[in-house]
Amino acid sequence: MIEVKNLCKSFGNNQVLRGINEVIKKGEKVAIIGPSGSGKSTFIRCLNRLEEPTSGEIWFNGENIVDKNTDIDKVRQHVGMVFQHFNLFPHLTIKENITLAPVSLKLMTKEEADAKAMQLLQRVGLTDKADTYPAMLSGGQKQRIAIVRALAMNPEVMLFDEPTSALDPEMVGEVLDLIRELAEEGMTMVIVTHEMGFAREVATRVLFIDEGLVKEQNTPEEFFANPQNPRLQNFLAKVL
């Protein structure tokens, strides 16, 4: 589904990604862990070209999205993204946050989008918030709405960039529960996270990115039980 070939990204003289090769298949749940500054966020942001790769290729459903001729907006309609800081639109109601993209891209009529929004809100138990504004929600609620907003586009893959890092500890659970549900339904997802327990439980594969390279990857059981790379051993020793 997604194939990354020799992906490099530099910010000025700072080389953040140094040639990543990776294939993500349909239905996979890939967790990415690594120390801060390792390039894991940059990697996931390259997957929908929020960061412009310096070199390399990223193929999504048979299309090289790094190619300047690719209509990236079209690609992004199939790739949902959830951010660390939610990035809800504060001037729109919750329902409008969810329906803005599908309606203005003419993928749904206003009525269809409203119905879809209410159905999604019901799923996360926030129907009563439909007509309120983001400022009135808790962090956990905001992030669940952000996930729902991405789901409203019926994406084929979801990218999560540290979805729980900005949350109060007591709100992490409700967001992880929702992501876990999506995983169980078979959604393909890539998730950058510091929640090791969650990665072990939900992921089908865990990647360790360090110094701009995938230093190690394995099934979650092997990854956490038998880390090979000394830097990973060191990292796990610190965080577990």
């Binding site: 929020l50 992004r76 309609q77 993204m81 951010f83 990035n87 803005l100 993209a101």
Partner: peptide, 12 residues
């Protein structure tokens, strides 16, 4: 992040 959120949804 507002621009990024909009763009990530496929909006121009």
């Amino acid at each position: 992040g507002q621009m990024e959120a909009g763009r990530s949804l496929g909006l121009s």
